[in-house]
């Protein structure tokens, strides 16, 4: 189990990760969500002891990563797609990795087959597509047959076929009893694969809950009704004691309503309906609302974030968070 205790990372005056504490539960897929620049990649680098925390700590099965002997047998990670030398073949890349952790060498061919790279095993990584790099990275992560797997934005830049492959793989890994910790900036992607959800924004923990709970809380459906005879409709609904709320543009909304029943009710009373439509709040919207609040909270009185809350977050998340990344790139 991965545990974060008050993990904090500061680059210069930018707080990339702000006292994060959560646990990644064993044996399930945990989605690690946040807008671009929320601190997901930094958190993952901190877990692997690649970056040193400003304060706080991370443990893997109660041990720090730095003291793990042959860590690839505990935890396999895909951090970025093209982290192999362009002049080295896929097989040789996996070979040195296997040797460093005394992993049996037959695993090299096994993971190559598993990710579908057998045919290009002896080709140099220079000629690989993004998808092939991603597969090689996943092969590296799986090499030591680890209990814990960590993927940073694994579907980024992949074609639909590749995305489906990764989804299936993650579910399969969890079904084998492994812990899968996967980051994404897409709620829709996580809703399909993750059982548990950790959401961060601006380096802070926003939510840590089972996916089912998040869905139950955020995906309430309703039925929208529009009529030229609102009084008759409200009477009819009141007679059946169906609670109703005013909707946009003079419409009415019945939370959790059944469109068939409402339609029959209106017909029975001869009420003309101009609209009878089921409404679903999307998880993506719920996620954006959640992270937009974080923007507002941190941006303070400057105002830009206030709009984001009203109109979704289409503009805001691109802006914030990119800042510290830029400074970090500058530092490199």
């Amino acid at each position: 189990m991965i545990e974060l205790h008050g993990l904090t990372k500061r680059y210069g005056d930018k707080l990339a990760v702000d006292s994060l504490s959560f646990q990644v539960p064993k044996g399930v897929v945990t989605g690690f969500l946040g807008p671009n620049g929320a601190g997901k990649s930094t958190t993952m680098r901190l877990i692997l002891d690649l970056d040193r925390p400003t304060s706080g700590s991370v443990t893997i099965d109660a041990k720090g990563y730095g003291v793990l002997k042959e860590p690839l047998k505990y935890i396999g990670a895909l951090l970025e797609a093209s982290a192999s030398h362009p002049g080295r073949t896929a097989r040789n890349h996996l070979l040195w990795l296997a040797q460093s952790n005394r992993i049996p060498l037959h695993r090299v061919d096994e993971v190559l087959a598993l990710v579908g790279l057998t045919e290009v095993a002896d080709k140099k990584a220079r000629g690989f597509s993004l998808g092939m790099h991603q597969r090689l990275g996943i092969a590296s992560a799986l090499l030591g047959d680890p209990e814990i797997l960590m993927f940073d934005e694994p579907v980024n830049g992949l074609d639909p076929e590749g995305i489906l492959w990764i989804r299936t793989l993650m579910k399969q890994l969890a079904a084998e009893g492994r812990t899968v910790f996967v980051s994404s900036h897409l709620m829709s992607e996580m809703a399909l694969t993750a059982e548990h959800l950790v959401v961060i924004g601006k380096g802070r923990l926003l939510a840590d809950l089972p996916m089912a709970e998040f869905i139950a809380r955020n995906s309430r459906s309703s039925v929208r009704l529009r009529t030229p005879h609102p009084e008759q409709l409200l009477d009819a609904l009141a007679a059946e004691s169906i609670p109703v709320e005013p909707g946009p543009q003079g419409s009415f909304e019945v939370a959790g309503g059944d469109p068939a029943r409402l339609g029959e009710l209106a017909a029975a009373r001869g009420i003309t309906l101009h609209e009878l439509s089921p409404q679903h709040a999307s998880l993506e919207e719920a996620f954006m609302r959640m992270t937009a609040d974080a923007v507002e909270y941190h941006a303070g009185p400057e105002g830009a974030a206030g709009q984001a809350e009203e109109h979704g977050t289409a503009a805001a998340p691109g802006g914030w968070g990119t800042d510290w990344r830029r400074t970090r790139k500058g530092a490199n």
Binding site: L68, P71, S84
Partner: peptide
């Protein structure tokens, strides 16, 4: 240096954190 230019250094350190 080629570990830095290719980003492989992170893979190396993840494999051998000492």
């Amino acid at each position: 240096g080629n570990e830095y230019s290719s980003g492989m250094i992170r893979v190396s350190l993840a494999a051998v954190p000492q």
